[in-house]
């Protein structure tokens, strides 16, 4: 496996640290004019999501982590695994476990495309697109003529996610939701 020396460190690089895959967030080069150089590096551990700060002597190196992001279509779940398929026409499938899917589970809709991060060829994390469009399957009855009024109510979406929506939203409507904040954005159109 390739390795990166401190000269090659930069944001976005994926490396192995203490056996875990990490992504470099920041790399600070520090050197007194006449002295030894160091790199102060901030990394996020991709297994735990925890951010680490570590110092390296100039010239030290880290092993590259075999981590790649791939677009994949969500197929189905068998209860234990969530199955994804590459969108490159290879039909290759990857089962992601509950740990890899994490909170993204509430945004998973069949046939939609997600970013699956593979570590040594196995799904490590699944990231939803920033916006998803999902149907409302349950909410209190809407109030006619209330479109301009403030106020909100919970609505359950087809994936099981619950978001706060304006009072005029009714069952069967498709909503655009921001997955980063879990907030309602707009109606897509009545179906």
């Amino acid at each position: 496996m390739a390795s990166y020396s401190t000269n090659e460190f930069r944001g976005g690089l994926k490396v192995l640290l203490d056996g875990d895959p990490c992504i470099i967030l920041e790399n600070e080069f520090v050197k007194p004019g006449k002295g030894q150089a160091f790199n102060r590096v901030k990394l996020r551990n991709l297994m735990t999501n925890r951010v680490w700060e570590r110092t390296f002597k100039s010239g030290e190196s880290l092993e590259a982590a075999d981590v790649i992001d791939q677009d994949m279509e969500y197929l189905y779940t068998d209860g234990e695994f969530w199955h994804f398929m590459k969108t490159d026409g290879s039909f290759e499938q990857y089962p992601a476990d509950a740990k890899a899917v994490g909170d993204t589970v509430k945004w998973l809709k069949e046939q939609d495309v997600y970013t699956v991060t593979l570590y040594n060829g196995a799904p490590l994390t699944v990231t939803p697109p920033n916006f998803v469009e999902l149907e409302v399957v349950d909410t209190d009855p809407g109030m006619k003529g209330d479109t301009a009024q403030g106020g909100s109510k919970p609505a359950t979406l087809s994936t099981g996610a619950v978001v706060n929506v304006p009072l005029f939203i009714t069952i069967g409507e498709v909503l655009k939701v921001d997955t980063r904040t879990g907030e309602y954005v707009s109606r897509v159109k009545s179906s």
């Binding site: 050197k31 007194p32 002295g35 030894q36 160091f38 102060r40 110092t55 390296f56 002597k57 030290e60």
Partner: peptide, 17 residues
């Protein structure tokens, strides 16, 4: 990592950080 840093290397680190 400290092995081989030496006295001056240690001082450089402390000076920097």
């Amino acid at each position: 990592q400290l092995a081989g840093l030496g006295r001056d290397g240690c001082l450089d680190l402390l000076m920097s950080f």
